[in-house]
Each structure stands twice: as C-alpha cells, then as structure tokens.
Design a binder for these strands. Structure first.
Lengths: 253, 253
DNA sequence: CGTTCTTTTGATAGCTCTCAAGTCGCGTGG
DNA sequence: CCACGCGACTTGAGAGCTATCAAAAGAACG
C-alpha cells in the first residue's frame, strides 16, 4: 500500500506492457476499473486497452509530470503517490488547482486546448498509468463501455470543479477538504479517519483560497472542538458526522 | 437575431424534425457546428444526427427546462435566449452555477450522476435543441468527429468551471464576467461592446459570490472610471483593453 | 396611480488577509 | 552527540475588503 521506495536507478525502459506487483489490486480501484475488468467480453478490445497502458517508473517528489502548454498526448491515472496541479499567473503567483490520489485521472482538461492547461507535480514518489489519448479515443469508438466511462469521468470533473467555487467560510472549506480526502481514501480501501497530508499547509491554503495562517488557525480550532486531532501532517478525524455536517454545503452530498 | 416573440399558443407538437426559420444560421454557431456541418461526408450518420435533434417550442421566462434530480436523458443546446443554472442548499439559499447563451450546451454535468445536478431556468424566452444522450453517444461511436467534439466540449467545461474558483477581488470578478459575456456574444456574431444583461443584479452577484450591493457599487465605479457605461441592464464597454487587463487573472487568457 | 420588486446608496461590522515574530522539527556539520 | 540553520508551521495584532443592515430612489405592473 505504501509507495515504492525511492529508486535512483531509473534507467529501466519506460514502457513495460503491463502486469507486475500489486497490479491486480491497483486496477480494481483505478478510474478505468469498470472498463479494464469488464467481466470477460470484448476480449480483443480489452487486450488493446491493456496494450496502450504504459506504467511509468517512479517519479521523484518535486518532479513534474507535465507542464503548462506541453502538447497533450495522454491522460494519466495515479497508481501511487499524490499529484498536485497548479498554474502560475503573470505576476508569479501560484494557484493550486487540485490534488490527485491513487485511482484518479489527470489531464482531461487538456483535451480541448490540445495542451495541458496546468503543471502537474509529484508531491511524493508517484507512479502512473499513461493512456495515449488518440489511442484510447479510437478504442472508445469500438468499446461502448469505455466511451461511457470517459464521459462519466469527464462529467464528474465538471461537477467537481465547481465545488470550491462557492463563497464558503474557511471552516466549511477546510472541513470539506478533509472529508473529500477521507472519502477518496476510503474508496481506495484506506482508513477514512486517518489522513496523511502529503501537501504543505501552504498548498492546502492556496488550493482552498485561504491564507496559510487561516488554515493553521482553523485546524487548531477544529482540534480544540474535538473534531479532529492534528499532529504535524497526520490528521485523525474524531467526529466524522460533525465534520461532514460542516462540509455539507460545499460537498452538496 | 431577437428571440421569438412570446407565444401562448404552445399546443404544437414538441417534436419537429428540423429546419425552419434561421435554422441554417443557428447551426453554424451552435456547439455542434463542426459536427453538424462537416462538409459532406458520413452522410448517413449525419442524417441520423439531424434526426435525433429535437427543436423545442419557445420556453417562457421563469419556466424550468429541468430540475435537480430529474433523470438525465438529454443535453440541450441553447438556440435563443439565456438559461440560468442553479442549486438550492438545505437552508434554502440559492447558488447560481452558470449562464448559458445561444450556441452553448447544458447538461454535460448530468452524465455521471445520471440525474441533473442543478435546476435550469429560462431567464427570457428560450428555444433549445434537445439531443437524446444515449442516441448521441451511440452515434458518437460511429462518428469520430462527433466523439471528439463531445470530448472537447466536456474538457472545456472542466477548465471553465474552475475559472471562478480563484480568490479574486470583486473588481476582477465583475470585469471577467463582462469580458466573458462580451467574448461569447462576439463569437456568436453579436457586438462585443454592447451587452444586454438578461439576469438581475442579484443573479450576477450570486454567480460571482458577491453581494448585490457590491455588484452595484463596482459597476458604478467602473462607470466613473470610464471603463463602461451602464444604463439599467444595458452595458456599453468603453475601454475593452483596460477591462480585459482587469480580468486577465481570472480568465487566464 | 399605488404597489411591488429591483437597484442604488450609506453606515457599520465581521471575516480573513497581511505583517510580524516566535516555535518547532529536521538535516547538516562540527 | 549537539549546535546550528533553514524551512515549515504557529500565534498574535491590526488593516482591508466585502457583507450585512437599513433606507431611499427608481422602474415595472396591474
């Protein structure tokens, strides 16, 4: 369950057809799970899908997966680690757009402009599945399941990105952030009540459009109110229902 | 170019195959333009596309096109008029999600949940093209152009909805709002400098996550600074470059 | 022509940011 | 092993932007 250990020997070929290690487990929880493991029909198409997946070698923390304006060729599913996407405006200010956990898909917003609209950075050691987009699109034409899944994934992203657009209080934002992480981790089989924050307070603040000081203060208050327990980057959720109640406006559950 | 006059005699059948009035002009600027008018190939598929389009009768201002949790069956392209989408939270507060002008597509965020996640309301008299989603998805499998266009449209929406998520000042938000309207109207062949605000100040404020009073004040200040000229719901943009400069952070152009 | 809703304008308050300083943890090097 | 230095984080005080409250002016409607 832990990310692969840092390996400086990354001289192995980047293209390894498929299968190795906890492959099977990963694929059951990846964004394409419903497609990759459809229960045994469209066998030839499925084989094609397997072929067009490339598993990347581990990407070191602090390294980029792609950058703004890189030509768009592929979407990536996170296999392990956490990815941060962000843009930098013309005055040099960074703006964090999202965090991507294992099983989630990066790059869907690059289709229209045909270039990545943001930078993608590995926060810790990250491994990915790379899907060539032309290949997967053409395959989707022959595989209704895959097409439907792509539509669903993109539709989900449309709804999700308007999530933080509301005018919510710092408390609501932070509660929603924690609940969102908890839910997504729980879906992947991790604990729903113990969250490790891979990202810095500054990244969280930037993502939530708050000051880092505000994030600090709210976390402390949440702790004082016995909602959570914070120790550095480890968060234990003590009162999930109440936290969810705080987040309900933001998450519209 | 003006919306059809209000007609109380809406007893006509809702399904009219296609073609009538300024049909041709509309289709050249609709979201599916590149697909509906592909320059004469895939004739049979094209005919199918034409068949699955239903032109709705005019919808009266204040009437809903769909509501939260309605089962999802179709996406709609606006032909004339303006549509507002919004949700109401559990405390009864309304939250405006977007405004849709002629040529734009509504309902793409409903694919994943299979239900519309918001309400869609006609602000003035609205006419629509209705696309059955199952039909268009299956057609997309046989029509690579159409599939690609759907991917592009959804990708665009993903990027667009994170647009207002930043922590921008009231000035920046309002400037971006005006520029966005101006650009979208200009793309449709309307004037880029004369904008009619179909929506109320309250709707604008809600959409931008501001108070109506703030919208009022900022518009006045913009006028005092010779950026725009406001008369009720008519806005004339006097200094497009400067307004665009104000909006640049939000629109990331 | 009065009623009602929308919009504008003014005064005040509150939330969050900014600035500033201090604390903590961790890796480095003595 | 410990002192040092750096970055991340926390904590405090004050300022600013926008919301809220209140009220009046202006259109739209019957």
């Amino acid at each position: 369950m832990t990310p692969s250990p840092l390996s400086l020997a990354t001289a192995r070929p980047a293209h390894k057809p498929h299968a190795e290690g906890d492959e099977q487990h990963f694929c059951t929880t990846c964004a394409f799970a419903g497609v990759c493991l459809p229960g045994g029909y469209e066998k030839s198409a499925l084989a094609e899908l397997q072929c067009l997946i490339e598993h990347t070698d581990p990407i070191q923390p602090g390294r980029h997966i792609f950058r703004v304006n890189d030509p768009f060729h592929a979407v990536y599913a996170v296999r392990a680690g956490t990815v941060k996407t962000y843009v930098v405006d013309d005055e040099g200010r960074e703006q964090v757009l999202g965090f991507f956990l294992p099983g989630e898909l990066i790059g869907l917003d690059a289709i229209h402009p045909a270039h990545y609209p943001c930078n993608a950075l590995a926060l810790d050691t990250v491994t990915l599945c790379r899907f060539s987009f032309p290949a997967i699109a053409s395959l989707a034409a022959r595989m209704p399941n895959l097409q439907a899944q792509l539509f669903r994934l993109m539709s989900k992203d449309i709804a999700a990105s308007s999530l933080l657009a509301g005018d919510f209080s710092a408390d609501e934002r932070l509660a929603a952030f924690l609940i969102s992480l908890s839910d997504r981790l729980a879906n992947r089989g991790y604990s729903a009540t113990r969250v490790h924050l891979v990202m810095s307070r500054a990244d969280i603040a930037n993502y939530l459009r708050l000051a880092t000081e505000t994030v600090s203060r709210v976390l402390r208050r949440f702790q004082d109110e016995n909602l959570i327990e914070v120790e550095r980057r480890e968060v234990a959720i003590r009162d999930l229902p109440r936290l969810k109640h705080l987040a309900r406006c933001v998450l519209r559950t």
